[in-house]
């Protein structure tokens, strides 16, 4: 396939440009007068002088370099770079976005868990103590059962007591405010769990144990604090004693109620063994003639049945059934 004339001319123009003059390539040209004339025209054009002053290359570069340094974005901060590549720009790892999100989530959970564990032994006034209280609040929020929620509050109250004891044992008098706050927290927590535990034997038992512990530890705290802190410690001890008394009283009442209900439960079956009233006889009497065994239980003890519904004997019922048509006939 022969070359096009424009391509042939372009090849020899490149040669002419490289060698610099027509005379230098004259012997390399093919036997073509037209091509030689074209190249001589091109040679003339390439040698036309111009007097345009050249621009200052160094001065322009200095301006370019200054602008590059001050204004151009760094390649590492390219807008299309993924969060992973930006964060790990010093490494050659390429992590997909989803995997990066997963790793970050695990790291966040690990960090939160670590902070919670570290905060679990913190005391009021320490940096991680707010974390400890936040974890407690989250624990309460996530617990839906009221009884379990009160159990958790009892544990928290016990924690407040231990905190107060530890602060008093280890801190100087400059931490009076912190001790006051700890004792106030203990007092309010004790009051709250006492209110919530009034009708639950297990909870009341735990409240008694909590207040019992307070009665043992608070006197030691009272001895070591002064001023407002001592006053609050007195109040906390009084609250503990009152709560304990109330809890023990409620506990006693609940136990008595349990005993009474136990007695009732054991006597009820005896009532059903009335010598003259078998279940079939009971079913036959009164308005609730179709009542089931549940109705029988409601009848309670023999004495109750005597004051309430009078159960007629079977024979009498039979007589009534036979006399009823006669009454109708009289009407």
């Amino acid at each position: 396939m022969s070359k096009k004339p424009e391509d042939i001319l372009d090849e020899y123009l490149a040669l002419l440009h490289k060698e610099g003059s027509f005379s230098a390539i004259k012997n390399q040209l093919p036997q073509s007068r037209a091509l030689a004339e074209q190249l001589s025209v091109a040679d003339l054009a390439w040698h036309i002088p111009t007097n345009k002053p050249v621009l200052d290359q160094t001065a322009v570069w200095n301006r370019v370099a200054q602008q590059i340094k001050t204004n151009s974005p760094q390649p590492q901060a390219a807008p299309l770079a993924s969060p992973a590549s930006r964060l790990l720009s010093g490494f050659s790892l390429h992590i997909p976005k989803t995997a990066f999100a997963g790793i970050m989530a695990v790291m966040m959970l690990w960090m939160v868990n670590s902070a919670a564990v570290a905060a679990s032994n913190s005391l009021p006034g320490q940096t991680l103590y707010p974390v400890k209280r936040t974890v407690e609040r989250i624990q309460l929020t996530l617990t839906l059962d009221d009884v379990k929620k009160t159990e958790i509050r009892i544990k928290h109250a016990e924690t407040r007591l231990n905190e107060a004891k530890t602060i008093v044992d280890t801190s100087s008098s400059t931490n009076e405010k912190i001790i006051e706050q700890a004792l106030n927290d203990l007092k309010s927590a004790t009051t709250q769990v006492a209110d919530e535990s009034s009708d639950n034997t297990d909870l009341l038992q735990k409240v008694v144990e909590l207040t019992d512990k307070q009665e043992n530890l608070l006197p030691a705290i009272q001895d070591k604090v002064t001023g407002d802190a001592k006053k609050i410690a007195d109040e906390a001890l009084s609250t503990a004693k009152e709560t304990k008394t109330t809890a023990e009283k409620n506990l006693e009442e609940l136990k008595n109620q349990d005993i009474q209900s136990d007695d009732t439960a054991t006597t009820t079956p005896d009532s059903l063994e009335h010598p003259s009233s078998t279940p079939s006889q009971i079913k036959g009497g009164g308005e609730d003639a179709t009542s089931t065994d549940d109705t029988i239980w409601k009848l309670g003890s023999p004495s109750e049945t005597s004051t309430g519904i009078e159960i007629p004997p079977t024979e009498q019922l039979d007589n009534e059934e036979t006399t009823t048509p006669q009454i109708l006939e009289l009407k």
Partner: peptide, 26 residues
């Protein structure tokens, strides 16, 4: 330079062209 007769203006334009080229390259 052939198309902008004012020398300083021509230098400004050349500098802008090379700055723009650098920014686009990144």
């Amino acid at each position: 330079n052939y198309r902008v007769s004012h020398r300083e203006t021509a230098e400004d334009l050349v500098a802008e062209i090379f700055v723009k080229a650098w920014q686009s390259l990144q």
